[in-house]
């Protein structure tokens, strides 16, 4: 239901509930676009849309999830079409492949917690960046930003079961990447 906020109320919501999330929003945008100018445009566009549609936001509810949802949709509609990201078809093929039970068995088990803790950070960051955008997104939302599965389902417009399975595959893929890095660095 639409709210009828005064100009002052709108400004207050914007200042107190929206702007405090700008650091998370910018980091999310950067992980999606890998480009500083595009990230700025995406975040700015998201905040302008949030202000324009502020009547559909209920004061005091989950502003961060609402903003992330707008940013994700802006990315899909305005940026992804222009970018070289794999098409939806490619993604579905990947997801189907990684949803087969056999793959779990193939995930390497020689990566150790100590090895990961010894990594300087670039390896983790590069491994995350190398994932397909849909897999990357669920890891960002869950592990970097701490969203719960039901919040992620709303942000991504998918059922909670899809969040669970996508996150499962994303983490297995990330582990594969980290295992490759560990091998190259002679950790294992």
């Amino acid at each position: 239901m639409k709210k009828d906020y005064s100009r002052k109320e709108k400004n207050d919501i914007f200042e107190e509930e929206f702007l405090p999330h700008i650091h998370s929003m910018y980091n999310f945008a950067y992980r999606l676009t890998f480009n500083e100018d595009d990230s700025k445009d995406l975040v700015q566009d998201t905040y302008l849309k949030a202000f324009r549609f502020i009547e559909s936001f209920e004061k005091g509810t989950n502003a961060k999830a609402w903003l992330f949802r707008i940013l994700k949709n802006s990315f899909i509609n305005d940026f992804r079409k222009k970018s070289k990201e794999p098409s939806k078809l490619d993604y579905q093929e990947v997801e189907t492949y990684y949803n087969s039970d056999d793959v779990d068995e193939k995930i390497t088990t020689d990566l150790r917690a100590e090895t990961v803790q010894d990594m300087i950070g670039d390896e983790i960051s590069n491994a995350l960046n190398s994932l397909d955008v849909d897999f990357r997104t669920v890891i960002i939302l869950c592990d970097l930003e701490g969203f719960k599965y039901d919040e992620m389902a709303k942000i991504l417009d998918v059922p909670i079961g899809t969040v669970r399975s996508r996150l499962h595959r994303a983490r297995n893929l990330l582990k594969e990447k980290l295992t490759e890095y560990a091998r190259k660095m002679g950790y294992s």
């Binding site: 702007l19 700008i22 650091h23 998370s24 910018y26 980091n27 950067y30 992980r31 500083e36 990230s39 700025k40 975040v43 700015q44 905040y47 302008l48 990566l111 150790r112 917690a113 100590e114 990961v116 803790q117 990594m119 950070g121 983790i124 960051s125 995350l128 890891i139 960002i140 592990d143 970097l144 983490r171 990330l174 582990k175 980290l178």
Partner: peptide
Amino acid sequence: YNLDKAIKEMLKTKCIGKQVPKDLIQSI
């Protein structure tokens, strides 16, 4: 479990350090 926990913690500490450009808030 320990491996998954270590990866989750590393992601949280190593992947969110990008600074917001100074002019972005003002521009909005």
